[in-house]
Amino acid sequence: MTDRTDIFAGDDPFEIARRWLAEATETELNDPNAMALSTVDADGLPNVRMVLLKDITDDAFWFYTNYDSVKGQELQGAGKAAIVLHWKSLRRQLRVRGTVTRDDGPEADAYYASRSLKSRLGAWASKQSRPLSSRTALMAEVAKMTARHGTNPPRPPFWGGFRINPVEIEFWADGAFRLHDRFVWRREDPDKAWEITRLNP
């Protein structure tokens, strides 16, 4: 596509996404990897919340959470999700839709081990998305988990990674007079070639 130049240039959407994230890391004040994650429940009712993107590999976007949380259950139930990263400093956004797979293998173990001790213990203590009587009760649970697991807690069996394998990736950049630039990469499934289309703003 002849006019896909500058920030949109490249033959690999994952490489473009990594480049945009690296640029955002230099310009965003807080959490350049913050993304809105959209799921649906069993009735098809949408749900969205902010989570942190942890990696962009050559075929997927990765994040980590509690498998028993609402988002964890919805991700596993539907097997599909969408994310958007919006960088105000760059006036850009990245949208992704695709299939979701759970990953609780070595990558999840390594990421869990890299987190601070308090975050690792917090993952054990929090029954994410379920009712909580008070913050005091939560801190008591943290203390109990600290006593049980010490300074090297293993990764909880209910906590780990999800990977989104995209069937659609859209790159959006702000344009004068709201004449934005949008390029969408689409494929029927992860084994097929990408088709690239410029979209109207």
Rank of each mutant, 00 (worst) to 15 (best):
S126Q: 02
L45H: 03
A108G: 10
I16E: 03
F63Y: 11
V84Q: 13
L121Y: 10
V184A: 11
P154N: 09
A22T: 11
G150W: 07
F8K: 05
I56L: 02
T39A: 07
K88E: 06
G77A: 15
V184F: 00
R102C: 07
E74W: 06
T5W: 09
K71F: 01
S114G: 07
W159N: 01
V142P: 07
D174M: 14
R91E: 15
R130V: 14
G150I: 04
R102H: 07
R91Y: 00
T25N: 06
I164A: 08
M1W: 10
D68V: 10
E26S: 13
I169V: 11
D104E: 03
V84S: 13
V96N: 01
L75R: 01
S38C: 12
K88V: 12
P201A: 15
F8E: 01
G44F: 08
V142L: 14
W87I: 02
G105D: 02
G175T: 05
M1I: 15
A9L: 11
M139R: 15
D174H: 13
K71H: 12
A125T: 04
E23G: 03
R198I: 04
V96D: 01
F8A: 01
F177W: 12
I164H: 03
Q76A: 13
R92C: 09
P157A: 15
D55C: 00
P166M: 05
E26A: 11
G10E: 04
N152W: 08
R102G: 05
T197M: 09
N33V: 12
S134M: 10
K144T: 10
L132H: 09
R155P: 06
L90A: 06
A9R: 13
D6N: 12
